[in-house]
Nucleic acid binder design. Structure first.
Length: 759
DNA sequence: CCTACTTGTTTTTTT
DNA sequence: AACAAGTAGG
């Protein structure tokens, strides 16, 4: 069982009882340790179903289960399901497997069973995704007659989420608020929470908070869960927030078998409430803990680790990663003109790799913000490079898909008003703004939710004409759907599309894109039938083994899956596709070749960071990106980048200054010239310092340069060569500045009085 | 009172 | 460039 493990890994694997913290650097075999530890527990007689392992994504959960199964004796592995979001980890089916889930899906599943114990929720509660939340915030603003420009819904929502992750109640926030604005925000929070309850809905944060409440207020539930889960493991502990920690603590404080694994250097979710405090809390609550540090890296070349180590270490400098891996190519930094040149240059690179036999699925393009994927997608389409964008606008966020799902939700729950409002006049059925307002007021006066009101006889009294007919029509559609709720899930989805008259509406209102949107709806039906298949296989296995389990209705499961399983995880990663994703979603993954694009100031570090902790987190984010690479790492930055509809000059990331003196190679130039300079081929040796000298870069004392942000200036002095050539410049706007030529977007220009031609 | 068109704003990261 | 709120016509 401990085959091929290093001593530190072995200690972690064989530590079974009592609290354990594993500090695991990138590529140090953390997943290996976790899977071996689970297998090791089972081999000493621990019942698999008494093991709970919380992972950061559903994909990681599946992967971990798969790898654990291969470590178990065949007989045991064979009777366990291969994979799937509800098969192996269904809480309601004690099928003998360890429960591997994310916090959110673990909570959702428990709440489905127990939420009726928490007033006023009932088991068909809805899970609100960010679009639903946004709609709810907008409604609250309207409700409180606040203006959306001074309370931008998105910013407001993230403030609410922040409070919720701190576990501050609306009342507390209200008490603590000093300014008028703060008090208004507290009112929004209060009303928002009130509406969620009324609507029998939980947002993502609520899933965690409601479970904490359930465990605290209902000792019998807590008791039964403690009895069931004798061993609790939390992965990516550095990215857990307060409610998540509390759940872990509540479950484990009695038997104390809590194992947390993580890496403080990879903490990148503080904006979601993740906090290093959880390590402190762990130490306080479980003082008898043991600690194991895994610092041998098995993933990357020394070149990559050298760069990584420059980016880590301010916080936890004591710990240094090392590797025995063999040397690889130098880490390269490409400087390009703009985002199109960047895409072209990197497409070249990818084609070269492919020609060398590198599999596309071993190549990843990473970026700070989703918007950067666009140019690459266009370029890849043009060049016929197969790719897959992970994350971003997901399938289930598509308008047409959300609309049909809203029909299903509104039919299923009379309290899900966000869903109902979404489809009130979609397709258009003559119910305008004014009529909706009247209807809402009437419902409010009657003390009902919209859904309840709609189903009452007096619902239509306030309306006349077209609007009245329209509401009648809507009511009929929902009635049809509700009365067919016993039908198969696939039929229900199909029926929602038909009864709503959605397809004709699409063709009329979306002349450009209706065909694609129709295909998306067909895919939705397919997804429903897939869910159904999984569910029926679970039920039949349960029936065969004579075990009892609480059947959750298929629609609830379908909606839950859609809300909690991200697009990235739904898409079966096909071979032969280059992956494009944000640095955040790259966490936990590894690739042979990694390209990090847009390594520019205001992007990495992002301009919205808070000082100075924010910068630290941005640095860790780059660290995470860098350490995804096994063999080759390339970073790029452009001198210009399109934002909205104008070109902006860009500066290279200030993080590059931390990399000075490493053996990274800087390459300038675009697609055509770039890859054919002699010195790049020699990737193993040190770049000779005079490599740049051969070509006159036109930058000498006395010559003029233009800096794309700072403007024109005259070079006062120059030292060094090549990548380390520094110049001192006096700018026209005033001020002197030291610049590293390779980093700074400077171009030699003729002395002033010349015409100013901007690129 | 509804709908189609015009105008202004928007992009950090995710369960 | 895409999406919501605001405005005029029907």
């Amino acid at each position: 069982m401990s085959e091929g493990l290093n001593p530190a890994q072995q200690i972690a694997v064989s530590h079974h009882a009592g609290p354990l913290a594993v500090i695991a650097g990138p590529g140090s075999g953390k997943t290996r340790v976790m899977t071996h530890r689970i297998a090791s527990l089972i081999s000493t007689g621990v019942s698999p179903s008494s093991i709970l392992a919380i992972t950061f994504t559903n994909k990681a959960a599946d992967e971990m289960l798969r790898r654990t199964l291969t470590l178990l004796p065949d007989a045991m592995g064979a009777r366990l399901p291969a994979s799937g979001f509800l098969g192996p980890s269904s809480l309601d089916l004690d099928d003998g497997t360890p429960v591997l889930r994310t916090f959110h899906s673990f909570c959702a599943r428990l709440l489905r069973r127990y939420i009726h114990r928490l007033e006023p929720y009932s088991s068909n509660f809805s899970i609100y995704d960010s679009a639903d939340q946004l709609q709810l915030v907008s409604e609250v603003l309207k409700n409180l007659q606040l203006d959306r420009t001074s309370f931008p819904p998105k910013a407001t929502l993230s403030k609410l989420s922040h409070w919720k992750n701190q576990m501050a109640s609306p009342e507390q926030v209200s008490e603590d608020s000093a300014t008028f604005r703060d008090r208004e925000m507290a009112r929004i929070y209060f009303r928002y929470q009130e509406l969620l309850e009324e609507r029998n809905a939980a947002d993502f944060d609520d899933l965690l908070l409601l479970l904490v409440r359930l465990l605290r207020e209902h000792p019998d539930v807590l008791e039964s869960l403690r009895n069931r889960f004798n061993f609790v493991m939390i992965d990516e502990f550095q990215d857990t927030n307060r409610p998540q920690y509390l759940i872990a603590k509540l479950l484990a404080e009695q038997h104390r078998n809590l194992c947390v694994t993580g890496d403080p250097d990879q903490s990148i979710y503080s904006w979601r409430g993740a906090s290093q405090d959880n390590y402190l809390r762990f130490r306080e609550d479980f003082p008898e803990y043991s600690i194991v540090t895994l610092d041998q890296n098995y993933r990357s070349t020394p070149q990559i680790l050298e760069v990584a180590s420059r980016l880590s270490g301010t916080d936890f400098g004591e710990r240094k990663l090392f590797t025995k891996n063999e040397s690889g190519p130098e880490v390269r930094v490409l400087q390009v003109r703009d985002e199109r040149a960047e895409a072209a240059r990197i497409a070249d690179l990818i084609e070269n790799w492919q020609a060398d036999g590198v599999s596309s699925s071993e190549i990843a393009i990473l970026y700070r913000v989703n918007a950067l994927s666009r140019t690459f997608e266009e370029e890849f389409v043009r060049r016929r490079i197969l790719y897959s964008v992970i994350g971003g606008m997901s399938f289930y966020e598509r308008k047409e898909v959300k609309d049909i799902l809203a029909y299903l939700r509104a039919a299923r729950s009379t309290r899900d008003d966000v869903a109902l409002q979404r489809i009130f006049n979609v397709p258009t059925r003559g119910i305008g703004k004014v009529s909706i307002e009247r209807f809402v007021d009437a419902a409010g006066d009657a003390g009902r939710t919209l859904g309840e009101h709609l189903r009452c006889d007096d619902a239509l009294d306030a309306l006349r004409g077209k609007a009245k007919k329209g509401v009648e029509q809507l009511r009929k559609v929902l009635e049809t759907l509700s009365s067919n709720s016993k039908k198969s899930l696939t039929d229900q989805v199909q029926l929602a599309i038909e009864a709503s008259g959605y397809l004709p509406h699409l063709e009329k209102s979306e002349p450009e894109s209706w065909q694609e949107r129709e295909r998306n709806l067909a895919e939705l039906v397919a997804a429903a039938s897939e869910t159904e298949e999984i569910l029926s296989s679970v039920s039949s296995r349960a029936a065969a083994s004579g075990e009892e389990f609480e059947q959750i209705d298929a629609l609830s499961l379908f909606l839950e899956r859609i809300a909690l399983v991200t697009n990235a995880e739904m898409k079966s990663t096909k071979d032969g596709q280059v992956s494009l994703m944000t640095l955040h979603s790259a966490k936990g993954l590894e690739f042979d070749r990694v390209v990090i694009i847009g390594v520019e100031e205001t992007l990495i570090p992002h301009s919205r960071h808070g000082e100075p902790e924010g910068i630290e987190e941005e640095r860790r984010l780059l660290y995470v990106g860098v350490t995804r690479a096994r063999r080759e790492l390339v970073m790029s930055h452009a001198s210009w980048r399109r934002r909205f509809d104008h070109r902006e000059p860009r500066l290279p990331s200030s993080f590059f200054t931390q990399l000075e003196g490493t053996s990274i190679v800087f390459e300038q130039g675009d697609s055509r010239e770039g890859s054919h300079r002699g010195w790049e081929q020699d990737s193993f040796g040190h770049i000779p310092d005079d490599s740049f000298q051969e070509e006159d870069d036109g930058i000498h004392p006395g010559s003029w340069i233009r800096h794309e942000i700072l403007g024109r200036g005259v070079v006062l002095s120059a030292q060094g060569h090549g990548a380390s050539k520094r110049i001192s410049v006096r700018f026209e706007q005033g001020g002197e500045k030291q610049l590293v030529v390779a980093y700074a977007p400077v171009t030699p220009i003729s002395p002033p009085d010349d015409e100013w031609n901007s690129p």
